[in-house]
Write a protein that binds this DNA or RNA. Structure first.
Lengths: 228, 228
DNA sequence: TTTTGAATGGTACTGAGTACCGGCAATGCC
DNA sequence: GGCATTGCCGGTACTCAGTACCATTCAAAA
């Protein structure tokens, strides 16, 4: 057990140093030296300094891709909800490592941005899958696919962050519940929940203002006369 | 007209060079030289090489913040939908410039990532606004706020990208329609737990009836007991 | 005329990331 | 054993973004 792989030592060294003196204050040279390897070796194992924190996003993305490709029956949203569980489970498996990473990304803007970009890749994958699955090239279906993908990802992130913060004793149950919530947002396989042409959408809210003062706003929302 | 400001010349030079030889192949030195200024001056006007493409995201973000702060009546979602229109209008005002930027971000990964990060900032702002507005600290309300923010942003991006690609002759109408769609996703009381006495409660639902036909019923409901 | 201040340009530095080369095992085959 | 191949490693040198600092210029204000 005397020698973990160079890759593992690099990751370990990086986390220790980032904790000790902060991310920006740590150079790649520092990490390599601490791990007892050359600088070149660092870049052989990790594409960039940020990469040492997020080693297997690519692998995970591929996992999701495969899972979606192997999806059987059910709706697109169900398949995607199912796939997104995998991501959550992956983080939970990482356990403490995921929490340390979260602590880092919360502090360092560059890392947070990297995380956001990764999440966007998942969302894109989902959007494309849903769009393909629906096979409906209309503008409305396209928007719907976009909304679905965004909702699934948002729900996942919500539960994940809660767990990372230690606020969620049972993230699996929570993500299932959240996914049910998302599914409930999009009723019906294809058809939009609109009655006939000329249907009316009314919004419910509470305000201190008088009803008549609200009428113009209401009318605009409903789509009578587009108002600028 | 002999001398546009250094800032403008830099932006102009950057776009020309990016078109000519690509983003990565263009150095900051190239841009500065072409604009006839020193390298230092470039970084005085733009924080980074990427910044010259996205000059006023910060300003726009502040604009949105102000708009949300000044919001009058309506639900949180309505306020946010309203604010997001501003963003779309800003892009439309930019016109061809926005399209050139889109062409660049489509080709250059680094720029696309930058764009994604910017979008995430809007989404965060919206989420916080909705969350504050709801004033409901439960987990379920928090998830709801997250979903709403994600949906609004997704819908906006959808319309924006369509317009940028030249697929949308009337993006304003489309964004209004898309926002109605988003509103329809989130029915039920989004009311704050506390409202002043004598306030007005309105409920959101979809019906096949004409709005004017509904008005008497609405008034009766509102006039009597605030109903959920 | 003098002073002040803002915009500029130049120089030098840090640090990430890339390219390339040479060394050094371990494994293969003859 | 001798020998070539392959894969991992370390070192050097380079490019370029971004920062820090200083000197200059020029114009408005005093």
């Amino acid at each position: 057990m005397s020698k973990p792989t160079a890759r593992a030592r690099l990751a370990q060294a990086a986390f220790v140093l980032f904790d000790e003196r902060g991310y920006e204050q740590t150079t790649v040279d520092d990490i390599a030296e601490r791990a007892g390897v050359g600088r070149t070796t660092f870049f052989r194992h990790y594409r960039s300094k940020e990469d040492v924190i997020f080693p297997d996003h690519d692998r995970l993305l591929q996992l999701i891709r495969d899972r979606l490709a192997a999806t059987g029956n059910g709706t697109a949203l169900v398949a995607v909800s199912d796939a997104v569980r995998l991501v959550l489970l992956h983080y939970i498996d990482e356990g403490d490592l995921a929490r340390r990473r979260y602590a880092l990304t919360s502090k360092v803007p560059a890392l947070r941005e990297r995380e956001i970009v990764s999440v966007a890749r998942y969302q894109r994958l989902f959007r494309e899958f849903i769009s393909d699955w629906m096979g409906d090239p209309t503008e409305s279906a396209s928007l719907r696919a976009e909304l679905m993908a965004a909702s699934v990802v948002a729900a996942h992130n919500h539960v994940l962050r809660r767990w990372l913060r230690g606020d969620s004793p049972d993230p699996i149950a929570e993500v299932d519940e959240a996914m049910r919530e998302v599914l409930a947002l999009f009723p019906g396989p294809q058809s939009r929940p609109r009655a006939a042409d000329g249907g009316t959408t009314v919004a419910v809210f509470r305000t201190g203002e008088d009803f008549d003062a609200l009428l113009p706003t209401l009318r605009r929302l409903i789509g009578g006369e587009p108002e600028r």
